[in-house]
Amino acid sequence: MRKILFAACAVAMVVSGCGADDDTGDLSSTTIELPTTAPQSAAGPVEVDQTFSGSTVALGLGQLLLVRLPQNPDDTESWSPVNIERGVLAPEPPQADGASTLWPFRGVGPGTSTIQFVYGPASQPPIEPGPEFILTVRVA
């Protein structure tokens, strides 16, 4: 009989939530704010260079993509982005280090985006087809 009474008490404590949980807050009034930009990813940045042109890379949401393109500081020509689709990737300010320019992009939304750069005069769009860099990026 004691075993049955003990088992009944144990079940009653589990069903009633036997702890001292005094949280009686109303969840119906809870507000959740969604981020307007993707947070930084725990995964490290993905760095690509000219050899990746024409390929596809995968990023996690919030992960950073670094596109490193060669740059001659004495040259009047430079790489310029010509096709950056918004919504999947967000460009960040480029950084030049003399021998190259680093173009950072952050994955801010799921989807696929293509980025394109052309090499030509810095002051105007290229007249003749020249070197280009095209990369497809999948953000998940």
Rank of each mutant, 00 (worst) to 15 (best):
M1D: 10
M1L: 09
R2Y: 10
R2D: 13
K3C: 06
I4K: 08
F6M: 13
F6T: 12
V11L: 08
V11H: 02
A12Q: 01
M13I: 05
V14K: 00
S16M: 00
G19L: 00
A20N: 07
D22M: 04
T24W: 03
T24V: 07
G25A: 02
D26H: 01
D26P: 01
L27N: 02
S29F: 13
S29I: 15
T31S: 13
T31M: 15
I32P: 07
E33D: 14
E33F: 15
L34R: 10
L34M: 07
L34Q: 04
P35R: 01
T36G: 06
Q40Y: 14
Q40H: 12
S41N: 13
S41F: 07
S41L: 14
A42F: 10
A43D: 08
A43P: 10
A43G: 09
G44H: 02
G44R: 03
P45D: 09
P45V: 09
V46C: 08
E47G: 10
V48F: 04
T51I: 09
T51A: 11
F52Q: 15
F52K: 11
F52L: 10
F52E: 07
F52N: 08
S53E: 10
S53Q: 09
T56H: 05
L59Q: 01
L59V: 03
G60L: 12
L61I: 06
G62E: 02
G62T: 01
G62F: 01
G62N: 01
L64I: 14
L65F: 12
L66M: 14
L66E: 13
R68K: 14
R68P: 14
L69I: 15
Q71R: 15
Q71T: 14
Q71Y: 12
T76W: 05
E77Y: 06
W79H: 09
S80D: 04
S80P: 01
P81W: 09
V82C: 03
V82L: 02
V82K: 01
V82A: 03
N83F: 09
I84N: 03
I84E: 07
E85A: 11
V88G: 02
L89I: 04
E92K: 05
P93K: 05
Q95T: 13
A96F: 13
A96N: 14
A96V: 12
D97A: 07
G98F: 05
G98C: 06
A99Q: 13
A99D: 13
A99C: 12
A99H: 11
S100T: 09
L102G: 05
W103T: 08
F105V: 06
R106P: 01
V108K: 00
G111P: 04
G111A: 07
G111E: 04
S113F: 02
I115L: 11
I115D: 02
F117V: 04
G120C: 07
P121F: 04
A122N: 04
A122H: 06
S123A: 07
S123T: 04
Q124G: 01
P125E: 00
P125A: 02
I127S: 12
E128D: 15
G130N: 08
G130Y: 10
E132G: 14
E132Q: 14
F133Q: 06
L135F: 12
L135A: 11
T136A: 13
T136H: 05
V137N: 03
R138G: 04
V139S: 03
V139K: 02
A140I: 09
